[in-house]
């Protein structure tokens, strides 16, 4: 998982998640405040530069993480580029949409600016810290419990899946598309069985330690949390002001 690698290894790993979340929120707001493509592109540029230069996220990794979302953007822009109408005989008629360029520029620049804000947050902050932030924001305990469990089991299950895929491939289980589908069916079924067994084991382990309510962990402490949050708030306001001023 590329995002996890960067979240744990970047320069701003120890900065309080509230500060980083605040700056990402500022970026998202600025992306929507920006009325012109130039303004949104300016915001995207500033946020990307902050991520690459400030948090020292590797540019190569950044591009690889952003690639799938930009592919979605490209495909959707394609459909915005053309317009269908009915001609005199009632058949569909394709033509270039009259305002296509300005429309695509608006949507693409806003999407890229928002994507940059999301990537800033996830590439600098491990999920564990984000869950702490969500707890501070009073997200219901049930949702947090599911997130904590999901995060802990994710890597266990994906290793089990990887092992099964290797074992199946070693026995020519993926030699043809038909066999592959059959093997994947068996794999998913095996994994579902594991879901039950592992959940049962976790429940027994929790019961053995008198755990019968929600799961609680010590929250990590962040040095200079207040100072960093103030700086992030100021930076967010500056971003929003920049989005507003680039409009004119």
């Amino acid at each position: 998982m590329l995002i996890e690698q960067s979240a744990y290894a970047n320069r701003w790993r120890a900065v309080s998640p509230a500060a980083k979340g605040g700056f990402a929120l500022g970026g998202l707001l600025a992306a929507f405040v920006a009325n012109t493509p130039t303004a949104a592109a300016g915001i995207a540029l500033v946020v990307v530069a902050t991520t690459l230069l400030g948090a020292r996220v590797s540019p190569w990794l950044y591009l690889r993480v952003a690639a799938p979302a930009t592919a979605f953007l490209a495909v959707s822009s394609l459909s915005l580029m053309f317009s269908i109408s009915l001609d005199a005989s009632g058949g569909p008629q394709w033509q270039f949409a009259p305002d296509a360029v300005s429309r695509i520029a608006t949507v693409a620049s806003r999407s890229l600016a928002s994507l940059a804000a999301l990537l800033f947050l996830v590439l600098t902050t491990p999920l564990r810290d984000l869950i702490v932030l969500l707890r501070q924001l009073r997200v219901p305990e049930v949702i947090l419990d599911l997130m904590v469990l999901c995060y802990r089991m994710l890597f266990v299950l994906s290793e089990a899946m990887h092992d099964m895929l290797t074992a199946q491939a070693a026995r020519l289980g993926h030699a043809s598309a038909r066999r592959s589908l059959h093997s994947l069916g068996l794999l998913a079924a095996n994994l579902v069985v594991q879901v039950w067994q592992r959940a049962q084991a976790l429940a027994t382990a929790a019961l053995a330690r008198n755990g019968c309510g929600s799961l609680r962990f010590l929250s990590p402490a962040f040095a200079h949390a207040r100072r960093d949050t103030l700086i992030a708030a100021a930076a967010s306001l500056a971003l929003i002001a920049l989005a507003g001023s680039l409009d004119r």
């Binding site: 997130m147 089991m153 959940a199 429940a203 929790a206």
Partner: peptide, 9 residues
């Protein structure tokens, strides 16, 4: 636990 593990699944 079951729902959490199911989400991971």
């Amino acid at each position: 636990m079951l729902l959490g593990v199911a989400a991971a699944f």
